[in-house]
Design a protein around this nucleic acid. Structure first.
Lengths: 157, 157
DNA sequence: TTAATTGATACTAAATCAGTATCAGTTAGG
DNA sequence: CCTAACTGATACTGATTTAGTATCAATTAA
């Protein structure tokens, strides 16, 4: 059971880059390099983030992307819902009103409870909180957060 | 984000049927009819449950399947791990020791915490607990739990 | 003018998901 | 001893999702 797909995963990292350089436009190429995300893939994600009004863009040379919303207001839950649809445990059985026989749908309220727990947990984790963690980790190691010169170690197999 | 796939989903329901008729062998056909699960699909799931020693089988005419373990000891977590692999949030980034640079893996400990929460929640839900809920729901409505004559309403689209 | 950039799509390969089909071996009961 | 009802094992299929690539047009700073 893998919870986050590449879309969400990359989106989180892209937003961390953007949150780390607020006020200036950052190009997709820069983000892609910094976070080791496939360039064209990233561009689609950014368009999606624009559609959801999390970031804004400026076209043309020296254009790029900038975070529009407060990093503390962007939770993992929202990103998951954008890129992977609503958090739900089992679609066919417990949704869709197919199971009119309540005795057959006994799992349902348990499942709904878990869905709520999962949503709440992901809601707690925001781009802002992650960025602070990242800054702390950087301080511990005497490096700047989101150090641009850091090697891209998360390469693909 | 869909948490349970059909495998897990059907497995839970099959185990509920088996737990509801402990001590006797129940054929795949009976379970399939009772829970409205595609017959051949179900047979593969049952083989998998045998391999994991959750159920035992008897071959030949009037053969079938029987629950081997205590229903209270079979949690959703175990079933998810059998049919969907270990509960993990994001494979590539935070696993596999690829991210040696700790500053780049800041999400990791947050993610691990969520993974634990999710595992714990699914652990709490067992075949035994579900069966009791089901019996309660049945009593409320004046029907027997897992009533064999109940119509199969969860048909597929 | 041009090089760097975003906007918008179209395309592909591989993996996973959900389901079907087949054949061999086993067993209870007539 | 036959046969019908089973399980065991495995191969196959079509649809969908996932992850990634490619292309072309429009915009803008220098």
């Amino acid at each position: 059971m893998k919870v986050l797909n590449k879309n969400t995963d990359y989106a989180v990292r892209a937003l961390l880059s953007l949150a780390g350089s607020q006020g200036v436009y950052m190009s997709a190429k820069t983000i892609a390099t910094e976070q080791d995300i496939p360039y064209q893939f990233l561009r689609r994600l950014l368009q999606e983030l624009i559609r959801h009004r999390l970031v804004v863009s400026r076209e043309g040379a020296s254009g790029g992307f900038m975070l529009k919303r407060d990093p503390d207001g962007i939770g993992l839950r929202e990103l998951i819902e954008i890129f992977q649809g609503p958090v739900q445990v089992s679609e066919c059985l417990f949704r869709k009103k197919l199971c009119l026989n309540r005795a057959r749908c006994v799992l349902r309220h348990q499942i709904l409870r878990i869905e709520q727990v999962v949503r709440d947990e992901f809601e707690k984790i925001t781009i802002g909180s992650l960025l602070r963690d990242l800054a702390d980790a950087g301080r511990e190691h005497g490096t700047f957060p989101l150090n641009h010169s850091a090697p891209a170690e998360c390469s693909h197999h």
